[in-house]
C-alpha cells in the first residue's frame, strides 16, 4: 500500500527520498515567499533541496501574502 504525506491538508503520495523542493514542485508552489514546516518544525529555505520528508509527515507550506 502506498504511503502518503499531508501537504496543506491534502494527501500526497510519498516517495522514498522526497525532499521539500520536490514537494513544492509537485504541488506547483511557484510563489517565492513561502514558509515550510514539517510536523511543526521550521525548515529554512537554504536546506529545502536536501531536507527529506518522512512518510506520514504533515507538511505546511505557508504562502505569505503579497500584492493585494
Amino acid at each position: 500500500m502506498s504511503q502518503t504525506i499531508t501537504v496543506n491538508g491534502d494527501l500526497l503520495e510519498w516517495t522514498e527520498g522526497m525532499s521539500v523542493s520536490d514537494v513544492l514542485a509537485l504541488k506547483k508552489y511557484t510563489f517565492k515567499m513561502l514558509v515550510v514546516k514539517i510536523d511543526g518544525q521550521l525548515i529554512k529555505k537554504a536546506i529545502w533541496p536536501e531536507t527529506v520528508i518522512p512518510a506520514g509527515a504533515t507538511v505546511q507550506v505557508i504562502h505569505l501574502m503579497s500584492g493585494g
Binding site: 496543506n8 491538508g9 508552489y29 510563489f31 505546511q60 507550506v61 505557508i62 504562502h63 505569505l64 501574502m65 500584492g67 493585494g68
Partner: peptide
C-alpha cells in the same frame, strides 16, 4: 477592492483559516 483584505493564500492555499 482588495485593499482591505487579501486572504486567498491564507484561506485557499495554506488552509490556515478553516
Amino acid at each position: 477592492q482588495h485593499d482591505e483584505a487579501w486572504l486567498i493564500f491564507m484561506d485557499k492555499v495554506n488552509k490556515q483559516i478553516p
